[in-house]
């Protein structure tokens, strides 16, 4: 094993150099390149102010709960449909081509249709988030089930296993790693979608009068041209996405101890 020391040091150096460059390029003076982007010092000062503002934290909870609800439904339904299609050939033959035809439609193209269909904006944003993670889950679960060595099934069948035993002992445990990968990718997609969904659909703030999530926070900051807030919002969403992916990775490691030796 190599030591991690120099890696961290190099990382710190490059991030510091980048921040210095950004500071110089955005403060008035000989080095100034842009007048619209605020320097990092201004962004940090604004961020420390926002940390005490309840509205900022409400944006966090609104977005996080949307992401978690849409994601949870997508995982449950996606794993169920993926496993059903992996087990039943007829269902796979009927449902998979239709699924493949609908899949290339970008999730955000569903936003208007979803607003028409669902009675509240909350539901329509959640639905679009769900869609993005759902397709990823189904594809990953199916791919995982397909990748299981055929000889396991043959061995189990020749020793007299029934369909349920094969599912419980081979198909399901064999698919767990790809379920986890799908969940991680899907989590990234949900964070990407929630921002745009909140920007396009207005975040529900106009209706309910409460804070409308981090995407909406960015959008209102843009409309009110408070640029430090935009950057705070961008990094906040980045942190949210990063933390949730890291949490999923940790859960995945706990759930599949048998993969650790590799």
């Amino acid at each position: 094993m190599r030591r991690a020391g120099p890696e961290i040091l190099c990382g710190l150096v490059s991030v510091t150099v980048f921040l210095l460059f950004w500071e110089a390029a955005s403060t008035p003076g000989a080095w100034q390149l842009t007048e619209v982007i605020p320097p990092p010092s201004t962004v940090l000062r604004r961020w420390s102010e926002l940390l005490w503002s309840p509205d900022y934290w409400r944006s966090w909870t609104v977005t996080t709960s949307r992401v978690l609800v849409g994601f949870a439904i997508a995982v449950v339904l996606g794993v169920a449909l993926g496993l059903l299609m992996a087990v039943n050939r007829t269902l796979y033959g009927i449902a998979f081509p239709t699924f493949e035809v609908l899949r290339p439609i970008p999730p955000l193209a569903w936003v208007p249709a979803s607003i028409i269909f669902w009675p509240t904006q909350e539901l329509s944003i959640t639905f679009v988030i769900f869609l993005g993670a759902f397709t990823t889950m189904v594809i990953n679960v199916l791919g995982g089930a397909r990748a299981i060595d055929l000889r396991y099934f043959q061995a189990a069948r020749s020793m007299g296993s029934g369909a349920w035993d094969i599912f419980r002992r081979i198909t399901f445990p064999g698919t767990v790693p790809s379920i986890l990968v799908g969940a991680e990718v899907g989590m990234g997609i949900t964070w990407a979608i929630v921002v745009a969904g909140e920007m396009i659909a207005g975040g529900g703030a106009s209706l309910s009068g409460t804070a409308g999530g981090l995407g909406y926070f960015i959008w209102t900051s843009y409309v009110g041209s408070s640029f430090p807030d935009i950057i705070v919002g961008m990094f906040s969403i980045g942190i949210g996405g990063f933390l949730s992916s890291a949490a999923l990775r940790a859960i995945g490691k706990l759930a599949t101890p048998y993969l650790r030796q590799r």
Binding site: G11, S14, V15, W191, A192, V194, V195, G215, G238, G241
Partner: peptide, 19 residues
Amino acid sequence: LFPLFELFRPIPPLSWVPL
């Protein structure tokens, strides 16, 4: 370069809209 790359990667592409 990779630490910088990883600093910006988690920011969803669509939150760049206003900037």
